[in-house]
Design a protein around this nucleic acid. Structure first.
Lengths: 223, 223
DNA sequence: TTGGTAACAGTCCTGCGAGTCGGTATTGCG
DNA sequence: CGCAATACCGACTCGCAGGACTGTTACCAA
């Protein structure tokens, strides 16, 4: 099921242990992380306060600070958690696809779009943006994000083995798909026509199909 | 030169007036706006304080509050200013293109990419992101942004008249180009290979060319 | 020249977020 | 049983951002 995904399980949440205290601890931590995701999605990074997270998680601020001593520590955990959870869901859903839907590919893009619409991605995007201007956060975020990119590509490649023999093209198409979906997400509220947005996703899907089948020549590096 | 662009000139900066006070006022306001752009680009929306802007503009906080009574008022002005300035530069640069470069189109995309890399867009993006979770800001930002989308499309269409007879395809390609460039921008620091990023821009350029020339069929709405 | 107004400066107040610290109750180990 | 560790709590400090307010100087029109 989640085979190689366990390797990136967020620390502090590792394998539900035996003792009562450990189980309680994990449970509380997850409640905190979920609350943090909520707050990030609703209020953004800067306006998310530890107070607010504690309230949302329905525990005291003191308890929160017990599990995550500083905001940084919490945020680092949230970064791992959001990526992990999103990937877990995405991989699971791909697994449920029929061979036809998977290869016809529209479904794959549509699933990726769904994952981009998730609360987890909303929170992740907030952190990603904040990391552009917050030096401290940046140092935590960037190495993690770069690692995530690699993992994500491995997982998706494993799910779409027909790409295995054209790695450069695969990389390009992943970049392309991700950029397109995230760009679309950014303009979600500004562009008002749902039809046009669906059309755009179709265009991206079809381009990828055309590239895969050789109907469209990929650009090559100039000398 | 800036023909129809004057209509969107930020208010408060209108036509350099006659009196000394008015000229001084405009000059100071521009200094403030430029400082705000700097701060937004460097520190993000939430961490940008009025104190910081005043310091950067090398005026007192009191003076700032004289020109822009509240932070909201300032931000509203910055939204207008950043879009205006970016469009002004973009349109001017397109005007400098040779017919060949313009129609070969790569140059058009590359110019758009340049405009997305500008400080003005960095600031605009910050505000755009903040507006997703800040209700107050959202109400100021969204209507302006939607208006900007319309204006931008008019200006670009005027610069690329060969699209004039296929309006739906033009809209799709604009969406496509913008989503792609902004998605690329988001991942700028996470994706490390400059070559791959250039390749992605090429792919987007070529897709648009292929769509324009009919070599690629655009997707159509399903019933 | 003079009164009014606009540009600018600096101080004080209020609210709030992060993190520290002392404290209580429950669990777990010897 | 008894002592350490752990989950959890709430009061307090400290710094800082927004902005209200008062004061000062420079322009300008009558």
């Amino acid at each position: 099921m989640d085979d190689g995904l366990a390797e990136l399980e967020p620390e502090g949440l590792a394998t539900a242990g035996q003792g009562w205290q450990q189980r309680k601890s994990i449970q509380t931590r997850i409640a905190i992380l979920e609350a943090a995701v909520d707050c990030l999605e609703r209020h953004g990074y800067a306006r998310t306060t530890t107070q607010m997270i504690a309230q949302t998680a329905e525990i005291s601020r003191g308890a929160m600070l017990h599990h995550y001593a500083t905001k940084q520590e919490l945020i680092a955990a949230v970064i791992d958690y959001t990526f992990y959870k999103r990937m877990e869901q995405f991989v699971a859903r791909i697994g449920e696809l029929t061979e036809d839907a998977r290869v016809r590919e529209h479904s794959g893009i549509e699933l990726y779009w769904q994952s981009v619409l998730s609360r987890e991605f909303a929170a992740y995007l907030e952190l990603s943006m904040a990391a552009r201007t917050d030096e401290e956060l940046r140092e935590i975020f960037l190495p993690k994000a770069r690692r995530f990119v690699r993992i994500e590509r491995e997982k998706v490649l494993a799910a779409f083995p027909e790409w295995q023999d054209k790695p450069e093209l695969y990389e390009l198409c992943m970049d392309y798909c991700i950029a397109g979906m995230e760009g679309l997400l950014l303009n979600r509220d500004v562009w008002e026509s749902e039809e046009r947005k669906a059309l755009l996703r179709d265009l991206i899907s079809q381009t990828i199909l055309a590239l895969r089948d050789g109907r469209l020549k990929p650009p090559t590096l100039k000398a």
